[in-house]
Design a protein around this nucleic acid. Structure first.
Lengths: 392, 392
DNA sequence: CGGTCGTGAAGAAACGGTTCTGCCGAGCCG
DNA sequence: CGGCTCGGCAGAACCGTTTCTTCACGACCG
């Protein structure tokens, strides 16, 4: 009885094994070859006649064989997984202001990764090692890394390629991609000037991330260059309610601006509401531009000019750079001087393994979507723009 | 010569191993214990005195030891990864209309998973096996599964727990969560009736997913019950441009409704724009409600009443159900045929491994956020609502 | 005083693939 | 005719954990 129970319960000979799942050994046995042959046949390696190859494939298909991802990863050192690291505010991944940007960027990144055979794992930077070390990553994308992100440093040090969205402060990365924020801000200021703005204000954030810093600096620099007194209000951008208050403050100032650029997505509606409260007409009394990926600004009254950071392009580029780094260099020592086999030319082989020196960065252009809020129907005074003689 | 080459070529003694990364053996050697002890000490298993435990931990820390996720997964059969499967339209994961919903839901799901030590892998359903079989999943969440999704079926058959967001059509799942769409629609219709609507129209979709189907059926059922002729327009919801056209069509009909419910996120702005074109004032001439997670409708002119599906709650619930299933049952073996729970119940019951019978479903409530667009400032005719004598 | 129990720890077998090495036979060239 | 190469395939090591089993040893109890 005990023996019987034992026998049927523990190891019903080969029966239970069959039931569980088909392994490579089962396929080999069924096809009458060795497991080496099965592996080679399925992976297109080795030297096998086509007949053997197709027969093995067919048997594998019939048995519903699925190779174990874990075993493959263990042996080859490649998991096919790349991380998508987002900063967290409080408990939740990514902030409200980044919402649309993040969603678009993640969408494109997922798509790009999948197109090259990788899957994306979403990993907030705040999660502790128990999660991080539990997943084998071939590399990771970091969105807007903190200045001295310990996580990024550790990953980089242990040989995991890291590509950041947003120019990194002090942490080492394999490569980075960012918008040309300075050019973007200058372009907007110029655009507003051409539309007749005399005093341009800025709605900015108090946090120290690269985007906020670079944009604000560009604004301040422009102010000193053209001789305008800076008019700006800063608020904690991750607080959804604070934006409306800051917008109100900005328009309540004695030196009220006649044009405003808001750095964050909700600023457009906030500024519009504030303008309404003060009886300011847009664009007649106040020109408005904000940075946003949302298309609601096409339908507001009036439609608001927005700056798009083109997150889709960013996401795609970041992922492609990362995968290039993963595939271009064998983790650790191996430099690959020779291009071994053809077939890897689907993508422009532009990427190079940087030896030393600063990590390679790529600046991506932004796009200004001009709508009614930044165009005076009838230019009132036609103030001469500070600089731009060539174009209207 | 062969022997010499073999000996020196294969194993450069311990040097290279040290350089690469610290393994469990290195920790064991450094701590003067066996690898068993290291494993037990680090994982809190076995019977070890606290002194040994802490010493091993300290050594591991000093060496910067990180256990190999792949090896652990291979041995334990658990990867700590759960899939987040989204349907794809064209090349890209998740559609525009689902944007806000998906982002919120994914956010909550990521958070919930992380809180229980799991990470999320985003896996569009369209990607072929090369990606799917390359990642070891402990289970997966499926958003709005297709009626006979082959992927879901295969996963389920191979013993991977599957929990769906959206009541599944014909594919077997471990459990599912959905909103009570019928109750939601009826609630809105009642709300509009109470606000004085005489003829309520619907803006719906042409696709056959559960949400669209259930909502439309609820509307049609209500119409026959209260004796109103159905007034609705359907359009392909995944086409961003088609919504505006459909909204226009709906308001251009000879039997123009005096209240409209739009099933999809952009319908609110579309309907508002259409109303403006026809000179209809909202809410005086037209009552408006749409289903949306976006808070832009708090700032439109006028603010629009929205139905929130509470994606955060859904995401959290789905993930928790999935992890319960993963941890509650050892993959494959244990069937628990007792009490095959039937049908759907409101709110998370304790999870049970369904032996046979329908998978356990949970219906989650929605929330109607009432704003100006569905409330007449001065009730014009006060038509008696069809059914609701008790309240207001 | 001998057996049993409990404690602490080591040894070794998996886990399921990939891949290095080597064997065997057949052609080919000298 | 013999060595050499090359195609076709099998054997076995290996990846780095977890975990099952075993073992030593001191204390306690009968």
């Amino acid at each position: 009885m005990t023996a019987a129970a034992n026998q049927s319960g523990r190891r019903p000979t080969t029966t239970s094994r069959r039931l569980e799942r088909a392994g490579i050994r089962d396929v080999a046995a069924a096809a009458g070859v060795s497991i080496t042959t099965v592996s080679d046949a399925l992976n297109g390696k080795g030297r096998l006649p086509d007949e053997t190859r197709s027969r093995v494939r067919e048997v594998a298909e019939r048995l519903g064989y699925r190779p174990s991802a874990a075993a493959r990863t263990l042996r080859t050192g490649r998991s096919g997984l790349i991380g998508l690291t987002v900063t967290t505010y409080g408990e939740e991944p990514f902030t409200f202001t980044e919402f649309a940007y993040f969603a678009e960027m993640a969408r494109a990144a997922t798509s790009a990764a999948l197109g090259r055979g990788y899957a994306l794992v979403v990993l907030p930077a705040s999660s502790r090692h128990d999660v991080w070390s539990n997943v084998a990553l071939d590399g990771t994308v970091v969105i807007d890394p903190a200045d001295q992100d310990p996580l990024v440093s550790e990953l980089y040090r242990s040989g995991v390629p890291v590509v950041s969205d947003g120019k990194p402060g002090n942490c080492p990365v394999t490569a980075w991609v960012d918008n040309d924020h300075e050019a973007a801000v200058l372009g907007i200021l110029e655009h507003l000037s051409e539309a007749g703005a005399r005093r341009i204000g800025l709605l900015t954030g108090t946090s120290t991330d690269t985007y906020t810093r670079l944009s604000t600096e560009a604004y301040l620099g422009w102010c000193t260059r053209v001789g305008q007194e800076p008019v700006y209000e800063a608020y904690p951008a991750h607080d959804p309610a604070a934006g409306a208050v800051a917008a109100d403050r900005l328009l309540a100032r004695p030196d009220r601006p006649d044009a405003v650029y808001g750095l964050f997505d909700p600023n457009g509606t906030d500024l519009l509401a504030a303008a309404r409260r003060y009886g300011l007409r847009v664009p007649d009394d106040l020109l408005l531009v904000c940075c946003s990926e949302s298309d609601v600004y096409a339908g507001t009254e009036p439609p608001i000019t927005t700056l798009s950071l083109k997150p889709r392009r960013i996401g795609t580029t970041v992922v492609n750079l990362l995968i290039d780094a993963i595939e271009g260099v064998d983790s650790g020592a191996g430099l690959t001087p020779d291009t071994p086999t053809a077939g890897a030319r689907l993508f422009p082989p532009r990427y190079r393994t940087a030896g030393t020196g600063p990590p390679p960065g790529t600046l991506m252009p932004t796009e200004l979507i001009v709508r009614a809020s930044s165009q005076r129907r009838s230019p009132r005074t036609t103030v001469s723009p500070p600089r731009a003689p060539g174009e209207v």
